[in-house]
Structure formats: structure tokens, C-alpha cells
């Protein structure tokens, strides 16, 4: 029982990171119809910014907020400078351009911060005795903190999308750009804000992952792939789906490695792809996706 709870919390915590990243992918896909290949790398870059800022003496939480702002600006810039000009001329080429951005950011990180792994301080208490006991199981506070962050981000996003004017405009643009234009919404501005928001969320995910995973240039490679699977699994245009998909992957990872002896951690990708295949065969638009996506 105690081991089960530990694995459950670990699965939910890792799943929260995938969920955040998947959420970022979905925010972009809903508005622009593009899978942002550079999403993970912008997160990695942000985590290195956190590292630099904390080394210069800033508190971790403040460093993360500042790095999220950097992620916002970079991601917004990618939309404005790379995606939009190309999309007007050749929509199909955008995906190639985004792979280019992925490589460019990846190289940039190596140039500025080197290729050696470094540690990143945790924003939550993470000493050996920083745990609470839940139903007899020792649970690390840092792990609960990650789950808490996901809940707070979801709450803030929900408030923004449903209670603010810019959130309404973002939903309108995701649904019908032409009509958004006609009611006086500046669609370009909304797209930039959406991409920026996704960039900031991606940095947050990376900054939460790096303390336990170790900060290297390839920090977000695996998580990005898993988050893509999570987003497709949940439905590429559904924020709820992204979160559910992310948590499913985190839990699968934790329980598979924990309980199924012959499936090690290396088997996670194949197993996830099988799950994805089955879901897509039964529900082509994902668990929570709307059918509209199929026509894209």
C-alpha cells in the first residue's frame, strides 16, 4: 500500500510535467494549427536561464518567473518572425521551419551554457527529510509541489480563458480567425500572446523537471515526445485532454516500471505508442478532442 501511494504520487508528479508541456502544445495548436516542435527546447533554454539567475543570487521562484518571461518573449517571437511570414506563403513549410527553430535553440543552449550537466535548485524543499506521510507512505514535498503547480496553472488558465476579455478573444481566434477579425479582434496579437503563453508554460515545466532529472541540453527531448503523445492522446485541441493525457502517461510510467518486471523504463515509449494507437483507432480525434480537428 505504501509503495503504491509512493508510485501514485510519483506518477502524478511526472505526469503533471508532461501535462504542462502538453497544455502548451495544445494552446498553440488550437490557435495556429501547428505542433510546435521547438516547445521543449525553449523550455530547456528557460531552465538554463533559471540556473544562471539562481547562481547570480536570485531566489529560485523569482528566477523561474523571470525565465518564464524570457520563454514568453522567445516563443512569441517565433510566431511573429518565423511562423507567420512562412504560413502566408506556404503553410506546409511551417513544420520544417519549426524543426529548424528546434535545432537552432538546441545549439544556442550548447553555445551559451556548454554541454556539461549541471544541477538546478528545487523551488520546493527537497532535503532528505522533506517528506510528509500519507496513509503510511513517505511522500516527498517536492513531488507534491509539482502537482500543486499544475493545479494552480490550470486554475489560472481557466480563469483567463473564461473570465477575461483576452481569454475570450483567444477562444474566438481558435474557433474562427476570419470572424474574429470581423468583430474587431486583432488576430495577430492574440496569436503572439498564445504562443508566448505556451513558451512560458514550457519553461515552467522544464524548471520543475530539471532539479530531479539534471539540467542538460537534452533535458526536454524525452518529455517533449511524451507530451506530444499526451496531447494527441487527449485530443490536440483540448486543454482538458492534454492534462488527462499527461497524467495517464505519468501514471503508466510509474506503475509500469514499478509493477511489470519485464518492462523497464526503456519500454515506456513503445508501450505509450501502443496505447496511443489503440485510442486513435477507437477515437480518431483523441479522448477529448472535437471532431473538427479531423478536417484540418
Amino acid at each position: 500500500m505504501s509503495l503504491f501511494i509512493e508510485r501514485l504520487v510519483n506518477g502524478l508528479a511526472d505526469g503533471s510535467i508532461y501535462a504542462l508541456l502538453a497544455l502548451a502544445l495544445v494552446v498553440v495548436f488550437r490557435s495556429t494549427g501547428q505542433l510546435n516542435f521547438a516547445q521543449g527546447e525553449i523550455g530547456t533554454l528557460g531552465a538554463f536561464v533559471v540556473s544562471t539567475l539562481t547562481l547570480s543570487g536570485l531566489p529560485v521562484w523569482l528566477s523561474i518567473l523571470l525565465a518564464m518571461f524570457v520563454g514568453f518573449v522567445i516563443s512569441a517571437g517565433v510566431e511573429r518572425v518565423v511562423v507567420r511570414p512562412i504560413e502566408h506563403r506556404n503553410p506546409g513549410a511551417v513544420i520544417v521551419a519549426l524543426i529548424g527553430v528546434f535545432l537552432a535553440v538546441n545549439q544556442l543552449v550548447a553555445m551559451f551554457w556548454g554541454v556539461d550537466a549541471r544541477g538546478l535548485p528545487n523551488v520546493f524543499p527537497d532535503q532528505a527529510d522533506d517528506f510528509v506521510t500519507i496513509l503510511g507512505a513517505p511522500v516527498r514535498i517536492a513531488r507534491l509541489g509539482v502537482i500543486g503547480v499544475l493545479i494552480v496553472v490550470l486554475l489560472l488558465l481557466w480563469l483567463m480563458f473564461n473570465k477575461t476579455k483576452i481569454g475570450l478573444a483567444m477562444r474566438a481566434v481558435a474557433n474562427n480567425q476570419e470572424s474574429s477579425n470581423l468583430v474587431g479582434i486583432r488576430v495577430g496579437t492574440i496569436l503572439v500572446v498564445g504562443w508566448g503563453l505556451a513558451g512560458a508554460i514550457g519553461v515552467l515545466a522544464a524548471a520543475l523537471l530539471a532539479p530531479s532529472a539534471g539540467l542538460t541540453g537534452t533535458l526536454m527531448l524525452g518529455p517533449f515526445l511524451l507530451a506530444s503523445v499526451a496531447a494527441v492522446l487527449g485530443g490536440l485541441d483540448s486543454p482538458v485532454g492534454a492534462v488527462v493525457g499527461g497524467l495517464i502517461i505519468g501514471l503508466t510510467e510509474a506503475f509500469m516500471v514499478g509493477y511489470v518486471d519485464f518492462l523497464g523504463a526503456d519500454m515506456l515509449f513503445p508501450v505509450m505508442l501502443v496505447i496511443l494507437l489503440v485510442v486513435l483507432l477507437l477515437r480518431p480525434s483523441g479522448l477529448f478532442g472535437s471532431e473538427r480537428v479531423e478536417r484540418v
Partner: peptide
Amino acid sequence: VSQVPQGRGTFTDLTVEDNLECGGYT
């Protein structure tokens, strides 16, 4: 100047009230 586009162009995923609020965006 406000336009009713061809084919109505409603925000189909949004509620009726959200649609009207979008109309009052400016």
C-alpha cells in the same frame, strides 16, 4: 461598420452569449 459574414461565421464552439460578447469586443 460591422459585418455579418457570408455563411454566418458564428463561433460554433462558443456559447451564444460568448458569441455576443465577442461581438462587443471593441
